[in-house]
Amino acid sequence: MNKNSLFKQGLSDGVPIGLGYLSVSIGIGIAAVGGGLNIITAVLMSMTNLTSAGQAAGISLIAAGGAFLEMALVQLVINLRYALMGISLTQRLDPSFTTGKRLFLGAFITDEIFAVASSRESVNVHYMYGLAIVPYIGWAAGTLIGASAGTVLPASVTAALGMAIYGMFVAIFIPAMKKSREVTLAVILAALLSTLFRVVPFFSFISYGFSVIISSIIAAALTAWLTVRRKAA
C-alpha cells in the first residue's frame, strides 16, 4: 500500500476510537471543572496528556492539593502500562519509523490506539499518523464540551456524566477478568485494598494518589508472584 492509502486506512480505523473518546472526555471535562480547573487548563491538560486514567487521577490530586512529587509518581505508576505497550508495539514497526518519528508518535500511544495498531501485521508511520488524528481531536473536543457544559448543566446531570469515565474503566477490566483468573484476583485485591485505605481511619494519612499506587502495586506484584510460583509448580 502507498502512504496515502495507509494514512486513509489509519484515519478510518481511528474514527470509532475518536467517537468513544469524545463521549468519555466530556466526563473528563466535567470532572476537571468540578476539580477547580477552568476551561483552558482542562483542554490544555487533555491536549498534552491524552490519558483517561492519568487525567482522572491528576484532577483528583489537583483538587486535593497534592504534592508535585506525588503527582509525578501517580502519573508514573498509572501510566506505566504505556511503557510496556510501547515496547510491544516496537516489534511491529516497519523501517519507516525513524528515531524522530518514534519520539513524536510515541506520544499517541493509548490503550485503544495500541490495541488497534497491534492488530496489524506491521505498522507504518503513515498509518499511525492517520490512526492518531481522530482520537486526539475527539479527546480535546470532548473535554472542551464537558468543561463548558460543566459550568451550565445542573449538578444532577454533571454528577451522572462524571460516572462515564469510571464506567469505561469497568468496561476495560471486566472482559479481562472473564478471560483470566489472575486478572480477576489482581482487580479484586486492588479494589479491596484501595477501599480499605479510604475506610480504615488508621490509613487516613495515606493520600488518594498514594493509595492508588500502593494498592495496585501490591495487588499486581502479589498476583504476579503467585502466577510465577503456580507455573513453576
Binding site: 502500562r81 510496556l84 489482581a186 482487580v187
Partner: peptide, 22 residues
C-alpha cells in the same frame, strides 16, 4: 516472567483501585 506478569496485571489493578473507592 515476574515482570511480564506484573506489567500485564498493573493496568487492571490501577483501574480497579481508582474505580471502587471513587
Amino acid at each position: 516472567p515476574f515482570l511480564q506478569y506484573f506489567f500485564a496485571y498493573i493496568p487492571y489493578a490501577v483501574l480497579a483501585a481508582m474505580t471502587l473507592p471513587h
